[in-house]
Design a protein around this nucleic acid. Structure first.
Lengths: 184, 184
DNA sequence: CGCCATTATGCAACTTGTTGCATAATGGCG
DNA sequence: CGCCATTATGCAACAAGTTGCATAATGGCG
């Protein structure tokens, strides 16, 4: 139920073609709702059929040619309705935690190396988020919209900090199996 | 790729029937890899066909009757191989963050109430995890397996703390729209 | 026995997300 | 023009997860 609403949000921020949406997802909305271009095109088709978006008149309906979409009033209404919904947080689903649990049963040579690898990846992601924060949310930008968008980004930052903290503590708690731990 | 391995892990900890697995998932593994009984039965069938598990000889193959499974050597080997895999962390996918982003565009009356509701739910979940920690991981239990399982639970605890922290800060940062904020 | 709640297994249809590939326009270069 | 890289749209098959329901055994109760 979320992808169409992610697309509506992106299109309201700026009318775009399928590929443009894909690129914007990679840089922004995709940080908390990722998607491929195939999924986006499929969803754009459904949204158009449902009368929630339409192709801009300028865009010819030919295959290899850009086709830009904009949100119709029905689409905005649908998005508003969705925002107002209550929805319980879902249980997490994390393969790394699952693998650690499995490791408790079948053993885990090299698990510490995998944890270190993840730690590095999360540090990189955190650095990226912090760079975006510095660029997009200087103190003087403080409208209601900016504050909400900033909070969303803050969610990403806090989440990376959670992983970094947990992984660091986990590495303290399990024995090293790889080559010299001091040289990592 | 994860559910079959979650099932193998659970079956290695203790041979079980489909419904027993479902219940154990609800209480334990399901905290980070949830599943329904339908999915579990389907997966048990596939694992049996693949020669990774087998029904215990005592269990008659009749429809309304309990059928217990145990892991075969091939299953244990498959699980070990999976544990040794590298797998990058996936992007988060969170509808609440998405809704907040949408709210920045179409407005969000009542969003603060939803955040407060989530905050309460996460506090409850945290309390549940802490109770489990106290019950299952007293200081004297400190085998390698216990430490790994405890780390997994710690992941859940830390994650709830992340949400509680973020939601609290978010509520500080957006205006209250509901009835008297001081009486919440 | 007949009725019913509970325990238990399982199928089918659907939705969502992923992977691989096909097709079409456009513009640069020789 | 022919060739090719790039941009762009899109289909099809598959995998994973969800929802709704069907079926079967068992044990308690009248």
């Amino acid at each position: 139920m979320s992808l169409p609403h992610a697309i509506l949000t992106a299109l309201l921020e700026k009318p775009s073609s399928g590929l443009e949406l894909t690129r914007r997802f990679d840089r922004s909305i995709g940080y908390f709702w990722s998607s491929t271009h195939q999924q986006i095109y499929r969803e754009l088709g459904k949204l158009e059929q449902a009368g929630q978006i339409r192709a801009l008149p300028s865009a010819q309906p030919a295959r290899g040619q850009k086709k830009e979409y904009e949100v119709l009033p029905a689409g905005r209404a649908a998005l508003s309705a969705w925002v107002a919904l209550r929805e319980d947080p879902k249980q997490i689903r994390d393969p790394l935690l699952l693998r650690m649990r499995a490791a408790a049963v079948v053993g885990a040579p090299g698990l510490d190396a995998e944890l270190r690898r993840h730690l590095e990846l999360h540090r990189k992601q955190l650095a990226e988020y912090l760079a975006i924060e510095e660029r997009d949310f200087p103190p003087e930008r403080n409208s209601e919209e900016d504050r909400l968008r900033h909070l969303v980004l803050r969610g990403g930052i806090d989440l990376e900090n959670f992983w970094i903290g947990w992984l660091t503590r986990a590495l303290d708690g399990i024995p090293a199996t790889g080559s010299s731990p001091s040289a990592g």
